[in-house]
Amino acid sequence: MTSPCAPSSRASSYLTLLVAFHVFIIIASNYLVQLPIDLFGFHSTWGAFSFPFIFLATDLTVRLIGKHQARRVIARAMVPALIASYVVSVLFNDGLFSGLDALGHFDTFVFRIALASFMAYVLGQLLDVQVFDRIRRSTVVWWAAPAASAVLGQALDTLVFFWVAFWHSSNPFMAAHWGEIALVDYAIKLLVSLLLFVPLYGIMLNAITRFMQSQRAAQVPAT
């Protein structure tokens, strides 16, 4: 598969869109992680289905505009995501709107979730960028890099998030089951990533490649 390269003149626009996308997914995931679900008798959360979108976006960023730009996206998104995640999680604690008055009280449980998300995001994404970039340079198999980065990046992300957020948590259920939930959460993320997002990565990369090639062809003056 041909590796496209985004025009440098459009890089800033891509970065802005990617930062906004990352912040949105982090906020959504912090809300959804408060909503538990049972899958085949195992405890998990709805956040397991939303967060892999970030890894898809990061992998495409590395492929299109390089790992240094991908790191810039992470650096720009992490602080706004931390603040917005806390605000949204307080307003919608346990999935229910708590009212604006809830912002007047500091919620340590929700702050731990926001802080855990911040740490997991930064560490998981930096590992994802490094693994993806190294593997894509050493192999021509298009799916190897996104698959390997998903396996390692999401393992670190999941471990850091659940350990920081729920180890000795004030929530008895999460304190007792965070290890089990983390394992199931990781398994779901991995299945979703390998079965859905890796193929989607290939489809999107191929579509972007053809679009860029058509744009370049249209800019070549006719002789």
Rank of each mutant, 00 (worst) to 15 (best):
L152G: 04
T108D: 15
V131H: 10
D59E: 08
L39P: 08
F161C: 09
I203Q: 15
I113V: 12
F55M: 01
N206H: 15
Q69W: 10
V122N: 13
I37T: 10
V23K: 06
R134Q: 13
Y186C: 12
H22D: 15
Y201G: 06
K67G: 09
P146T: 00
I37P: 10
V129K: 00
L115W: 13
V33H: 03
A114F: 00
C5W: 04
A28E: 09
L115I: 10
V164T: 07
A145K: 05
A77H: 03
S117A: 12
A84H: 02
P221Y: 02
F162M: 05
L56D: 05
L152K: 01
L194D: 06
L115Q: 06
G179Y: 10
D157H: 02
N171S: 05
A176R: 11
S117Y: 07
A120F: 04
I74H: 04
T108W: 14
F132I: 02
F53C: 04
L17S: 08
W178H: 15
H105T: 12
L103R: 06
R76I: 14
G179R: 11
V141W: 15
G153T: 00
A48T: 00
W163E: 14
R76Y: 15
A20E: 05
V140R: 13
D107L: 01
M212D: 13
L115R: 02
L82S: 00
L96V: 10
G95K: 04
N30L: 03
G47C: 01
P52E: 08
G202V: 02
L96R: 06
A28S: 14
V184R: 04
H105W: 09
G95S: 01
F166P: 07
I208N: 11
L127Y: 08
